[in-house]
Design a protein around this nucleic acid. Sequence first.
DNA 1: TTATATATTTGTATTATACAAGCATATAGC
DNA 2: GCTATATGCTTGTATAATACAAATATATAA
Lengths: 143, 143
Amino acid sequence: MNNKNAVERIEYELTTFIRRAVYIDNSENKIGNLERASYLILRQLEEFGPARVKELAASFKLDISTLSRQTGTLEGKGLIERSSDPSDGRVSLFTITELGREKLKADKKMRLARYQNMLETWSSKEKELFGELLERMNEAFFD
Amino acid sequence: MNNKNAVERIEYELTTFIRRAVYIDNSENKIGNLERASYLILRQLEEFGPARVKELAASFKLDISTLSRQTGTLEGKGLIERSSDPSDGRVSLFTITELGREKLKADKKMRLARYQNMLETWSSKEKELFGELLERMNEAFFD
DNA sequence: TTATATATTTGTATTATACAAGCATATAGC
DNA sequence: GCTATATGCTTGTATAATACAAATATATAA
């Protein structure tokens, strides 16, 4: 297979995958799970610690107003907590709460189960390699 | 790396990738390109031939009414063409037009260029393997 | 020939989003 | 120190994609 065909296949499969994954996300958040946006916010706060609205917006490449609303919703659900930055009164810093951690953990568990299931026939070696390639692809994903 | 960690990495990277890819799609369809939905519809019609609304909806797991509108829009733009099924007057069959093929080709070219760019440092072997793994993942992606 | 089922379209509500306006706070120029 | 400007966030408003429900046209079955 030449280079063009390999890249074509990658593009084809990733496009297909995105459509399916978005569908799954949308149907699952109706049965009580976190939607994509919330999952990403909680994941980021847990991984990198407190963040302000602007940072989150930049991280997900969404408008600040969108993140302002999303953080407001998560705050309302008690999944994240707002505090003010002592050095700048305009800023809201958000931290994941204990409840948020629990919800994130449960949600992640479900997501992992889906992938475990999908990839159950793969060898460990294949899974490792796939993860590694995905990570490299994302590292190169600038715009 | 044990199995759980490998799958965790896969889930993490794919979730990240989806967010970025959705962003790219949304920003690019504002500068005159096809949005995801149209791209998928054209791609399917070109690959598998004429299809009816119901089939397209099932294929993308979207509501029939959504596809009815999307096909209407594409028809209005001259990218697909409606014909009636001689054996069933209720059915609309859609076929990609020449203009649709051109638009699809141009759009695909752009998408491929992005991936070519992202993966330019990869060896042919890696690209082939990555495409193969993605394909296998999608084959196992049931719901 | 009428009742029921199916394919599609159209009406309506919801949701995620962006952009613009407004408000509070911070920083810079004088 | 005081006013002008910049920044961070929230809130108002518009748009677009979507689902669900109602309506319409056609097909199939009783």
